[in-house]
Design a binder for these strands. Structure first.
Length: 605
DNA sequence: TTAAAGTCAATATT
DNA sequence: AATATTGACTTTAA
């Protein structure tokens, strides 16, 4: 994503590109606050706030060192190597022997054989990436469009050196100066210490290998319509609260039965890893993967040798949810055992498989769900999670993971009563802007610095620490800046009616197909897949936001009246012209799709 | 302990 | 009503 994102940045994609990271790194130049010469800051921030934050004034040595350390973060990796990998991935398509069980896949998908790019082979679905040579034989999962078996492809492994799953993720270890530099240097030219490195090789090799898939008429819809008809049977809310009763979905029953019978009759499926439907279960006990995997084979660690294209999986999931009017909350809670917010985030910013840790399980569940026949998928939604687990062949979702123990302090007099809700802190505008500005310069401020920041912003140290932690994490995984996220794509398609009706034009279908195509981690993708945190992205981001940041900082500084800063102030004050900034960030109304979104976004901030 | 990863779940936006 | 955002837990690794 990262790399492709960068590469794809187009003229009008600018505003889009900033969308996500904006939250953390951008300041809204149009904000009245900012335009007000920062008067507001003076009111909320202690005087000499920045001074204090500045390493120099405060703890010269300590801060300096910390700043330095931050700068020394591990350099990121092997972007270059990855770039070269791309080409190979294409040519080294795995001959689909491993795809023998594709039939299973066929139950829900059908790879377009005549695709020029993928003439004939489902191999295209396989990842050229070879991370681990030790592969298990019996993985029928390979049949999934979202799973790519990692094979040792003709030398591709040579390129994989730095792309193992555990490739160090590095934050943009910018050689940012400490905040002091921020205060003492000209923001225009050096807002960001890191000078943008030349465009990565990725940037120029956008070779989006897109494989189109057609949704097979699992639901009686002809391939042509691709099952995009909004009229499809959709998920229906249980009448009352006590959902999850099997009986709750009578309309689905028959469908389920049909599906089950067909499924059962499908040889590949029975022998597949793919979970079998509930009833099928009975008639045909889920086969156990007797092999090496000690415990639950179905939930086996397919991570080592199979690669799930999370991005496409999410695209698919998004489509399914939309198409069947399944609320995220329902899907998230019943199928994934996760919260709606988590699902939303996952769908929008799927991390590449190789960078997932325990989070893989969630994606596995998504995968297992889509792997089911339509009827089963829908039926499962009305099942209890336990059943879902069984049906999907998964071990119980990772223990209700972070179930908040809500041991939140109950209000004084309240004893057994419902626990008081956890109040949620919301940064004030100033707090947020300041934190973002600082983050832009120093993603990893020292402890002392954080303490200082906390004091000045009247926040807890932990809060400040959390901010940086979240900011680092979120800026890193940044979604595809240039292209709409899977979910957004879905929404867009619906908006345009491409999906709503079954009688699309050839072009529409084309679009749809493409939209759901499986992109192979090729040139552009490999970068992110293997090296999620590409510098390019960050740099680009910086470039996009530099001026804004500078502006804001100026504002902050402007409010400052500390001794050490005078010089800094002087240098910094000359700020970029607001007009330009706005033009740069807010303009682009022309982009009908989300130009407005961007504007809104900015305005909101 | 600290940091990162994975989420929760309140609440902001659409 | 549904989806997106996001500060802060909880769980894992180091």
């Amino acid at each position: 994503m990262e790399s492709s994102r960068t590469a794809a940045t187009s003229t009008n994609g600018t505003e889009k590109s900033r969308r996500r990271n904006t939250d953390y790194l951008q300041i809204d130049p149009s904000s009245t606050f900012i335009n007000n010469t920062g008067r507001g800051f003076a009111e909320e921030l202690p005087e000499n706030f920045l001074d204090t934050i500045s390493p120099h004034p405060i703890t010269p040595s300590a801060s300096t060192s910390s700043a330095t350390s931050a700068t020394e973060e591990p350099a990121t990796s092997s972007a270059p190597q990855l770039a070269s990998l791309a080409p190979m991935s294409m040519s080294s398509e795995q001959p689909s022997s491993s795809f023998s069980s594709a039939s299973l896949l066929s139950s829900s998908y059908e790879t377009i054989k005549n695709e020029p790019e993928f003439s004939g082979s489902t191999a295209g679905l396989l990842s050229p990436l070879h991370v681990d040579s030790r592969r298990r034989e019996s993985h029928d999962f390979n049949t999934s469009p979202y799973i790519k078996e990692e094979e040792d492809l003709d030398g591709s492994h040579l390129l994989m050196g730095g792309i193992r799953p555990d490739t160090p993720t590095n934050d943009r270890s910018t050689d940012l100066g400490s905040i002091s530099s921020l205060l003492n240097e000209d923001h225009h030219t050096n807002t960001i210490g890191q000078s943008p490195s030349p465009r990565s090789t990725f940037g120029s090799d956008p070779t989006p290998m897109i494989q189109r898939q057609l949704i097979k008429n699992e639901d009686g819809v002809s391939p042509g319509s691709m099952g995009f008809s909004k009229n499809h049977q959709g998920y229906q809310k249980p009448r009352n609260g006590d959902r999850m009763e099997y009986e709750k979905a009578p309309y689905q029953r028959s469908l389920l039965n049909q599906a089950l019978s067909s499924v059962i009759s499908t040889p590949t499926i029975s022998s597949s890893n793919i979970p079998t439907p509930p009833s099928a279960h009975i008639a045909q006990p889920r086969r156990i993967y007797s092999t090496q995997d000690s415990n639950d084979p179905l939930n086996a660690e397919i991570g080592d040798d199979i690669y799930i294209d999370t991005k496409d999986l999410c695209k698919r999931i998004a489509f399914e949810l939309k198409n069947h009017s399944i609320p995220q909350a329902i899907f998230a809670e019943r199928i994934l055992c996760r919260s709606q917010g988590t699902l939303s985030d996952l769908l929008r910013n799927p991390k590449p498989w190789n960078k997932l840790k325990s989070g893989r399980e969630t994606f596995r569940r998504m995968y297992n769900w889509v792997a089911q026949p339509l009827a089963t998928r829908l039926a499962i939604l009305d099942m209890k999670t336990e059943d879902v687990n069984r049906a999907s062949g998964m071990s119980p979702p990772t223990p209700a993971q972070n179930v908040r123990t809500h041991s939140f302090r109950r209000s004084t007099s309240d004893h057994d009563g419902p626990v008081s809700k956890r109040p949620r802190l919301v940064f004030t505008d100033i707090q947020k802007r300041t934190l973002q500005a600082i983050f832009k310069e120093t993603q990893r401020p020292s402890r002392e610095m954080q303490q200082t920041i906390a004091e000045h912003l009247r926040l807890d140290l932990s809060t400040v620490a959390n901010f940086f932690m979240n900011a680092r994490r979120r800026s890193r995984l940044g979604g595809n800046i240039d292209e709409p996220t899977p979910f957004q794509q879905m929404a867009e398609m619906y908006k345009e009616g491409a999906i709503a009706t079954s009688n699309h034009s050839a072009e529409q279908r084309e679009m749809i197909e493409r939209g759901f195509g499986v992109s192979i981690p090729g040139p552009s993708h490999s970068g992110e897949l293997l090296n999620g945190d590409s510098h390019e992205d960050d740099e680009e981001l910086d470039e996009l936001n530099d001026s804004e940041l500078a502006y804001e900082e100026d504002v902050e500084i402007g409010d400052e009246e500390e001794e050490d800063e005078e010089q800094a102030n002087g240098d910094i004050l000359p700020t970029p012209k607001v007009e330009e900034l706005e033009e740069k960030t807010v303009i682009k109304e022309e982009a009908p799709d989300d130009g407005e979104y961007g504007a809104t976004k900015l305005a909101a901030n």
